[in-house]
Simulated assay, not measured.
Amino acid sequence: MTFQVTVQPSGRQFTCEEGEAVLTAAIRAGVGLPYGCKNGACGSCRGKLLEGSVTHGVHQVRALSAADEEKGFSLFCCAHPHSDIVIEAREVLGVGEFPIKKLPTRVAKLDRVADDVTIVSLQLPANERLQYKAGQYIEFLLKDGKRRSYSMANAPHTDEHVSLHIRHMPGGLFTDHVFNTMKERDILRIEGPLGTFFLREDSTKPMVLLASGTGFAPIKAIIEHATHQKTTRPMLLYWGGRRPKDLYMHALCEEWARTLPSFKYVPVISHALPEDGWTGRSGFVHHAVMQDFPDLSAYQVYACGTPAMVEAATRDFVAQCGLPEEEFYADSFTSEADLAKV
């Protein structure tokens, strides 16, 4: 049995198989519902159910509470229709522009840039090219059927290799493998491009780019792409870490600040130790943005990092700084621990 899904306000329609999640069907149909983790953890695909009925699979309460569900909200990555449904969601244009592919890749290089961060460079087959938008991600297809998601850290025009910034999560099945046993020339399977976090090139608004930890990866791709496109839009990067060593490409950001006329860089450290000798900005990275820009009504914000940072930034920027909700674009980096709670 199939059900029809109608998206408002666009009026777009697609079919969803019985037992299939709404988001899965939308991706297959090339309909751009916003999403991130696809696992009920980040809440990026949340919208409203206007007509019909769905059952939600397992998910985190912070992504969709029982009270929110009673108010008509739905989490489309785990919502399974029981009838034709009408949903309300902010569609993302351009999502279906490039085909989603499953490809073999070879590990071309492993570069340890911090105690707990490795840059993994992947080589695609000679006759294949992965087209994507700056900010999107790929998924590794693991042998046990599980998947792991990582944002591409290089702009689409520099596609000789696909570059990923991977932080070690001790005890994590995949990151333990990356840090302990992965070798150059290993073969891995990936699927992509995925995600609705990417640079909106139809805007002329200045951009606040907000990153915590390895959330810098897709932000880096966006900066490189915007620079390649010779954008004149101001770009203001706020990169936060617990300690200075967490800003593992600090020198590159400083170089951008010296050489790009429309670029500004503000590093922010939350838990510096005396031996770090840190003299820069301190505290939560999104608070630094609010101190510098109490009025964000004329800006776009691109935020990527921990769920706590992304949630706090969207709440505070909209409520306290006047940022239009539709101008906040985010990718919440859910970990294996986050997904284990689902």
Rank of each mutant, 00 (worst) to 15 (best):
T214Q: 03
G40L: 06
E18M: 11
P274N: 04
H250Q: 10
A134D: 05
K48E: 15
V162E: 03
T306E: 08
R62M: 11
S212R: 03
G305E: 01
Q13M: 11
F333D: 01
F73W: 13
A25N: 02
V178Q: 05
V178E: 06
A67C: 04
H250C: 06
V117M: 03
P274V: 00
L260R: 10
K102M: 12
Y302C: 04
F333I: 09
L49S: 04
A89M: 10
P324V: 09
I27A: 09
F284Q: 10
E51I: 02
L50P: 05
A41N: 04
P267C: 10
A108T: 03
S74R: 07
K109S: 14
L273N: 12
L296Q: 01
L50F: 00
L33S: 11
A288W: 01
L273S: 14
M1C: 09
R129P: 03
M249D: 06
M152W: 02
H157G: 07
V92N: 06
H225Q: 14
F317I: 04
L142I: 07
M235R: 05
E254N: 10
A226W: 00
F3L: 01
D115Y: 04
S335A: 14
P125V: 06
I166M: 09
L164Q: 03
S121A: 13
E51C: 07
V86M: 01
V178M: 11
R62Y: 07
A67L: 12
R200S: 07
E97A: 15
K133T: 04
G135D: 05
P324I: 07
V289F: 06
C16H: 02
V342S: 14
L103S: 13
P206F: 05
P125Q: 05
R315N: 13
S65M: 08
V178G: 03
E254G: 02
F76C: 10
A79F: 07
H250Y: 14
I85G: 04
H59A: 13
A66C: 05
H165F: 13
D186T: 08
T105I: 15
T15F: 09
M182L: 15
A257I: 10
P261K: 09
A26R: 08
F98H: 15
S10F: 04
A153F: 00
E17A: 15
Y238I: 08
L236K: 08
V95I: 14
